[in-house]
Design a protein around this nucleic acid. Structure first.
Lengths: 244, 244
DNA sequence: AAGTGGTCTAGACCACCAT
DNA sequence: TGGTGGTCTAGACCACTTT
């Protein structure tokens, strides 16, 4: 699947070929997150196809939120933003400007360990590969609402274990410091009841309802880079969805 | 918002006007669910715009799953299908052909009542309007997994209270018998623990984790027609999502 | 003024489906 | 064979942004 131009002899439609070609350039960092890509006319010339076909390809990519466009300015590679979906399952404080309050976080543990086998398998580590384990508790206005156990490949994130985490959000650090943007994440959620430890840390009764969230975060090329297990207070958990 | 033709003097783009016009025809049942709509060329002639613009409008509506298209056959009004999302939060048995097993249901209560004020407000009932209350328990292979309290406007669903519910799925009945298709639904979910009654009916321990789901289902014109409160076993609840 | 994306047109050719 | 949607082209004009 290497290509530089769409091809009429290919049985796939031209505009689909262009979609895949552009995704490939983004996945291999030929075009990096946030940068402006060439204009429709330039792409049409480069690929030797009509502007209308390029337009159709870009529309598909905008629909998929891979790109975004600004009339009069250009077309840009989208930067995944988890600030909303990041902890979308819990009620957040909303500031006057409509932005969301970033929760405080307290580090309970930061260590380089072997980690659970499940985590090692998900991250695709070699036999003796190490992981960074980060346990933290997150709160809003001194009210803790979620515990997180986070696992990262030590090889990829070497140095993270000594970093100052006062910035609170990890994904911007992954992106800026380790050149590893989180492109998407998969989550499994299910209910449970608090054990003694979680109850104490979250400030709730033992056996009170909690929500468990398992997350795997991925970067370019569907590469898993983070495994996160969260336990959140049930009484602050709310999830709304519209089924169509 | 009455119109029969898009209008150049309108500040909205033509194709958006056509999108709204078509939605309006579907919402008012001028074009009913499942029917084939006029071809692109016919619509272009009727609206006195180019075929390309009609095509763009239809693409938007296909994207929104209001319409679907079949090459060589035509364009059709989509029929909302909740068979997958219906109880998407619980593990389902999957048949050999990939279809999902429909759970059995046992009716615990069927009555015409005043109902809770919250329900009456949501359904927009007059002061002395009645609702049909249906309580049932749903199971797979004799294993109960969810309790449902369902409220319907008596005025709209008169006769439902005497119906045979062996068909198990309600939405096809709403559609076929009461000409009230469910177009979409909003849900809120949150965790809780089982009380004595729920525990007994679901076959779990008291205080075991459960998932609560509040659903409001809507028909044409954003009209709410059903309020449903569900309590499901936590151990069969699984929800997976990909965040992008 | 020049360059960008957004809308709209007119028309060609193809793939698929019904008859 | 005729009608449908699917792809692709070439070009016009508009709205917005930057220089």
């Amino acid at each position: 699947m290497t290509f530089n131009k769409p091809d009429f002899k290919n049985d796939k439609p031209l505009y689909i070929q262009v979609v895949e070609l552009i995704k490939h350039r983004i996945a291999t960092n030929v075009w990096s997150l946030g940068m402006m890509i060439p204009s429709e006319n330039e792409l049409a010339r480069e690929f030797d196809i009509s502007a209308g076909t390029v337009k159709k390809s870009l529309s598909v990519l905008v629909q998929e939120r891979v790109l975004f466009r600004r009339q009069g300015k250009g077309t840009f590679v989208a930067i995944p933003d988890f600030s909303k979906s990041f902890n979308r399952f819990f009620r957040y404080e909303v500031n006057k400007d409509g932005s969301q309050q970033i929760p405080d976080s307290e580090v309970l543990e930061m260590a380089i360990v072997s980690g659970p086998k499940e985590v090692r398998d998900i991250l695709g580590l070699e036999e003796n590969g190490k992981v960074i384990k980060l346990c933290r508790i997150r709160s809003l206005k001194k009210n803790p609402f979620v515990l997180e156990d986070i696992y990262l490949s030590y090889k990829r994130f070497k140095g993270f274990e000594n970093m100052d985490l006062s910035e609170k959000l990890l994904y911007p650090i992954f992106h800026k410091v380790f050149e590893t943007p989180v492109i998407y994440a998969k989550e499994n959620i299910y209910p449970d009841v608090a054990d003694a430890n979680a109850a104490k840390l979250l400030g709730i009764e033992e056996h009170a309802p909690v929500m468990c969230i398992e997350r795997i975060a991925y970067t370019y090329r569907d590469m898993p880079i983070e495994v996160r297990y969260s336990i959140g207070r049930g009484d602050t958990f709310r999830y709304s969805i519209t089924l169509k």
